[in-house]
Simulated assay, not measured.
Amino acid sequence: MAPRSNEKYLDTGRVRQKARTREQLVAVLRDLLKDGQDPSVADVAAIAGISRTTAYRYFPDKEALLHAALPETGLGSLLGEDPPSDIHARLERTLDAHFEFIRAWEPQLRASLRLSLTPGAARPTLRGGRAVGWYRDALAPLESNGAGVDTAALAVRLRAVAGIEPYVWLRDVAGLRPDQAFSAMRANALDILGAEMSRQQ
């Protein structure tokens, strides 16, 4: 289970003030991520003008704060409620949700990508490999149907053609519009799945 903010603390006494403080911490983190930084809870608290002790009452660690600022990062699946059983439909739904995440948080994702390419830099929090898990979740039915598909390897192949890295190349180098870039990533991912399914037949 992903780390969560301290909801019990938020629901008792001065609820509105606590909600404002929480949102202030979240907003500061979003701005810092957009600027290419990867701050700790203490860093965010200092910039927000909130004591470190208070900040940790809201968010026990950086992951909890990240999940509040960018909720998708705390999800183990992008399929939502009542996921389909068909593999192609599951992949399409996961692609739709992943692309919406990229649309919503493109500045933060670009900044994190730049930071990860800096020699000697630690891996940024946003570069946690979560999307591979999303794609493996989409492929989960293949693990129990005896098809012999290596879903871990296939998820990596799908992530290689659908994410912020190929999106940046398609936009900045190939010169595609956002909708064209997402269409290209979708086609590549579906082609990979189709080729794998054909190989198993």
Rank of each mutant, 00 (worst) to 15 (best):
M1N: 01
P3T: 02
E7M: 06
E7Y: 05
K8E: 13
Y9M: 14
Y9R: 11
D11L: 14
T12Q: 14
V15W: 00
R16D: 03
Q17L: 10
K18G: 09
T21K: 04
E23R: 06
Q24F: 00
A27F: 00
D31R: 15
L32Y: 07
D38K: 08
V41E: 09
A42D: 14
A42C: 05
T54P: 01
T54C: 07
F59H: 13
D61T: 03
K62H: 05
E63P: 02
A64L: 04
H67T: 09
H67Y: 11
H67M: 04
G74K: 07
G74C: 03
L75S: 10
S77R: 08
L78Q: 10
L79M: 11
L79T: 11
G80T: 06
D82T: 10
P84F: 10
H88Y: 06
H88V: 14
L91R: 10
E92V: 10
L95Q: 07
D96F: 00
A97R: 13
H98L: 13
E100Y: 00
E100N: 10
I102Y: 08
A104V: 02
W105V: 01
P107V: 02
Q108E: 14
Q108F: 00
R110E: 13
A111G: 05
S112W: 00
L115I: 09
L117C: 01
L117K: 08
G120D: 02
A121W: 04
T125M: 05
T125G: 09
G128V: 01
G128S: 09
G129H: 03
R130S: 12
A131K: 01
W134M: 03
Y135S: 05
Y135A: 11
L139D: 07
L142F: 09
S144W: 02
N145R: 10
G148S: 06
V149G: 05
A152R: 15
A155N: 04
L158I: 12
A160Y: 01
A160E: 03
A162E: 12
G163L: 01
I164S: 04
Y167M: 07
L170W: 01
R171L: 15
A174R: 13
A174K: 13
A174D: 14
A174M: 12
L176N: 14
R177W: 00
R177Y: 00
D179H: 03
D179A: 10
A181H: 04
A181L: 03
S183K: 12
M185R: 06
L190Q: 10
I192Q: 05
I192D: 07
G194W: 00
S198G: 09
R199L: 12
R199G: 12
Q201R: 12
